[in-house]
Structure formats: C-alpha cells, structure tokens
Write a protein that binds this DNA or RNA. Sequence first.
DNA 1: TACGTTTGTAAGTAAGTGATTACAATATTA
DNA 2: TAATATTGTAATCACTTACTTACAAACGTA
Lengths: 196, 196
Amino acid sequence: MSRETTDIRQEQIKKAVLDIIADEGLQNISTRNLAKRIGLSEGAIFRHFPTKRDIIKGIMDDVANDLIGSLRNIVLKPEKAEDKLFKYLCQNVKYLKENRGITMLLFSEAAHLGDKELKEKLNQILYEQKQLIIKMVKDGISEGVWDKSVNAEDIAIIYMGIPITFNIEFVLNKNGLNADNFCRRMYTLILKILKN
Amino acid sequence: MSRETTDIRQEQIKKAVLDIIADEGLQNISTRNLAKRIGLSEGAIFRHFPTKRDIIKGIMDDVANDLIGSLRNIVLKPEKAEDKLFKYLCQNVKYLKENRGITMLLFSEAAHLGDKELKEKLNQILYEQKQLIIKMVKDGISEGVWDKSVNAEDIAIIYMGIPITFNIEFVLNKNGLNADNFCRRMYTLILKILKN
DNA sequence: TACGTTTGTAAGTAAGTGATTACAATATTA
DNA sequence: TAATATTGTAATCACTTACTTACAAACGTA
C-alpha cells in the first residue's frame, strides 16, 4: 500500500466505518473488516488512531461540527422563522440520509452506554439541536406569527422524533419514504401546532 | 441450582436480557453474563433456547403480543377518538418505561440488520402500530371532531417519534422527562394538528 | 422401586475481537 | 547524502464470544 498522511488515513478510516454500517450493519465494524475495506493492514489502523473508540469519538466530533454547524447557520441567518424551520428540517433529514450510518452509530452508542465520554458527546449533540429548535420557535413567536402559548421545548421534543423516525424507516425499508415529500409533509404538521 | 421447567427458565432468561440491557447496556447480554445473573451455568441457557438469536426472537414475540395487544384493545374499544388517543399514547409510553430494555434491543437489532427474520419481525411490530394509529385518526375524522384534510399516515409517522424520543431521553438522562406530564403534553400537540 | 426423560454442571471448542510487536520501506530534513 | 521520523506489514497476543460435550442429579411414571 502506498504511503499517505495520517490526516488522509483518518478520514478514510472514519468514512469506512460509516460505509460499513450502512452496507453491512453495525456488527461488522471490526478493525479487521475496516482495514480490509480500505485495503490496509490492521496494524496500520492503529498507527492513525490509538484505539477503536477514538475512531467513534472522531466521527461524533464530525457530526457536532458538520451537522450542528450547518443547522446553526440556518437558525442564525436573518430570515423569517417559517422559512428557517423548513430549511432546518430539510437539512437535518438530508444529512441523515447522506450519512445513513451516523444515526445508527449514535444510538447504538447510547444503547450500549458503556462509555461515559461518548455518551456525554451524544448528549451534547442532542442538547444543542434542541436549543436551536427552541430558539427558532421563540423567534417565530417574537415575530408574532406563531402562537405564544406553545411550549418551545415540547416542539423541540416532538421535532426530534422526526429525523429519527425517518432514519428507522430508511433502515428497515430502504425506499420507504420520499425525502423531499417527507420534509414538506412534516413541516406542515409542525406548522399547524405553531400557528395562531 | 434447583430444577425448573423450560417454560419458567425461558421467562427468566428473557427477563434477564431486558434487565441487563437496562442496567448495564446492550453490550453485556453475553450468554455468560446472562447465566451469571440468573445463577445458572452457561450450558443451561442452551438447554432452554437453541441459540441466543432465539432468545431475542422470543422477546420480540412478547412485544408483539403484549404491547401491540394492549394498544389494539384501546383502539378497538367503543370510545371517543380523543380519549382513545390519549390512552394509547400513555399506554405506549408506560410500556416503554417499564420495559426500558426493549426499545434499545429492537433498534439495535434494526441497526445491526444482519438477521432478516428479526428485521422482518421488527418491521411487523412497527407496521401494526402505525395501522392502529391510522385507524384511530380515521375514526376521529368519521366522528366529525377532527380535520378531514389531515393525512392519517403523516400523523402516524410524527406519532411514532414520540415514544422513541422519550426512550432516548430516558436512556441518556434517566430522570429527563416526567412520564405523566410528558404524555399529556405530547397529546396536546397532536390534538392541535388534528383539530378542525 | 426401577427406568427413561428432563434439567443441571464443568470444562471444553473454534472463531472472532481489539491491540501489540518486530521489522521493512518510504519520506523528511540537517 | 546521511540520519531520522513516519507509515506500512505480517505474525501474534490475550481475551471474549456463542455454542458443545460428557456426565451427574432430579424428576415423572410403570
């Protein structure tokens, strides 16, 4: 195998984890299988990550940066709350669709709850997402377009289930839900709760 | 260890799986740990179940019978749709709270997607739940109390996320959500979508 | 009581896991 | 160019996994 820098190898390894999860399922992300998919020896994996756990940690950091980052951008832009909500939902669903392995990896880690640090990282990701949604809702209320008697946190909770359900349907039944359509339909429902 | 019938042992084994998941996390349901918790030798486990997979299968069958059964009872009773919806939601949340291990086990199996038969069983459970919700919504529309322009399937999708989110919050943050309160708050939101 | 069936145990099995080692080949830099 | 740091490999480690085997004890029943 030709030599590559640690930076490049780390990206390859993290990508391989997500690809394997999406293609073969979670139980196949052994370091052996990982090395095989990249075309590298198993020892080389441990040249670029000290432990397997650190690979997972790296992926979680990517989610925190990429997904949360892009969602934050949407929320912070000066736009109408209704438009932001729609874009937010679509972006969220799109990201999960394009990184199918991620939801499974995240919630598997939650379910295994062996590792406090990973659990804390996941908690952080979910918390930040919730705060962004709460902010959007409150902005909409300030704009005067949404019912001020709704509890922003309740909206955040019911919202969080949407991308998760989408992902589960996607895993169980690959062509179960049309993403664009799905996005707009769920948006309509949420809006009905929010409207005056 | 004193002798017990296979029926009793099977129940003990299935219960132990769920208890271990709730207490120690999914990665600890090894046959060794299972035997230890019951106070039995590992070999005895395989006296009562041919494979570990059959234990999981047995648990899934229990869910299909117990949870889906009790939800079906609620839906089929001659009552107002609004009352049924509330009871349905509360029963669903209650069951997941009392059998904390189940949601994790189910979605872990989905994520590992190695086993077609288990995946099919999970699909069936989710499908039946969805059908029950759709029926409830359509009943409410027939009664004339709910907006007939809402898509019953969309309601089912957004509904499905609620118990899942509840469970995730419960796993990550043990006292995160008050179940009774939670139930009523989510009910209020769904009702706002459904109302004329 | 005698006999066949059921339920139990202790000690194994082969296969897979994450991680390490000793060493070779390739870059980087003085 | 010579010395050094980096990236690669093959072999192997100790450990865990689901599952099996050989045999013993307890049970129902004739």
